[in-house]
Design a protein around this nucleic acid. Structure first.
Lengths: 190, 190
DNA sequence: CTGTCACCAACGACCGTTCGTTCGTGTCGC
DNA sequence: GCGACACGAACGAACGGTCGTTGGTGACAG
């Protein structure tokens, strides 16, 4: 009757449920129900639950890493590239909330053999922000900042928190969110 | 031999494990082991696992609400009170990471009958930030801000993310963190 | 006819929780 | 001062249920 489910369907549904209920809050039977099949039927497509978590998180990590690579390789002032990072980050989250949320929230539940590598990716992404801030300070575009590492954490805090409150049905348009975020990150409250 | 555990011990250990492994990632036997007793022995002190979650989160919520009440009732410019909020928030998190992290991360796993009330507390706390921002704009202390609600989300994003990276053993002192955060929230990067 | 995909029943492990019991400690009547 | 007794805290076995996972079987599409 209904067309059979693909491995792709399974991974996408897993992202959705992991984001919504957390990895440990999602059972294979839950996941099956989401797809209209039994939990045991999932094993026609995948090898195990933890593999699903790895795959979903890998996708999240890849998107952010791709953005950082692209922006950091492009020309432009620090401010321009910061704007590109903010816009790209917001676009990734608004278009792929589930993978992004799982990447940001469930990293600690990865099997040990995958954890370190993916955490390194996340740290690499943050390092792009730090380097950009340092460049901006050196170029005199930004104010003198004593602790660029901590400051990059602040910037990323604002960006990452979007997965916690963004709802596609919500009143705010992605472009507007990106603009306001960039504004806030650059100027603060004053 | 060893002194018996109190209900207080149990709640504290629960906060620690819920923060570290998440609610669904923590079993009663895990929790017992953390205290050096059996999982079943916990029921001499408590009625059920979900009660523990409620209690830990209640403590987290109470601390933040207390801070907001205190600061908002005090005199001072918007900037002064913003500094007080930031400092208080950082102090709460650095001194009670576990309750704070559980409050911020595990709200969605609360039993339905407790969820709405505690979410309302969280929203009330955020509303304090929004009101303060509005006051600051009206008084001309802050720049004109078109969307104070979203901006309050940004500020709180920076503050709340602290539970994700603060480690007591880390290099950064709480005072220094609070100063840098206030600086960033007020001035941004430029 | 072959391979894919789902079903179904079942596995052992673990889940939250209950129960009967034990052991030590402190209280109180005598 | 001493025995009886209630109590808090923990044990250990067991409960029904759910977990992730396996293997066998059949339906149905290419």
């Amino acid at each position: 009757m209904t067309t059979p489910k693909t491995r792709e369907d399974v991974v996408r549904a897993a992202g959705r449920l992991f984001a919504e209920r957390g990895y440990h809050g999602t059972s294979m039977r839950d996941l099956g129900q989401e797809l209209g099949i039994l939990g045991s039927s999932l094993y026609s497509h995948i090898d195990g639950k933890d593999q699903l978590l790895v795959e979903v998180i890998r996708r999240g990590a890849a998107m952010f890493q791709g953005l950082a690579d692209e922006v950091m390789a492009s020309p432009g002032t620090a401010a321009e590239r910061m704007r590109a990072l903010v816009e790209g980050h917001v676009r990734i989250i608004t278009e792929h909330v589930d993978e992004a949320a799982t990447f940001l929230n469930e990293l600690r539940f990865l099997p040990v053999e995958d954890r370190a590598g993916l955490i390194a990716l996340r740290d690499g992404y943050q390092r792009a922000f730090r380097r950009l801030i340092e460049e901006g300070v050196e170029a005199g575009e930004f104010r003198p900042i004593e602790d660029p590492a901590m400051t990059s954490t602040f910037v990323l805090s604002v960006l990452n928190a979007l997965v916690r409150w963004y709802r596609p049905a919500g009143p705010a348009e992605p472009d507007e969110i990106a603009s306001r975020m960039y504004e806030f990150v650059m100027e603060g409250l004053t």
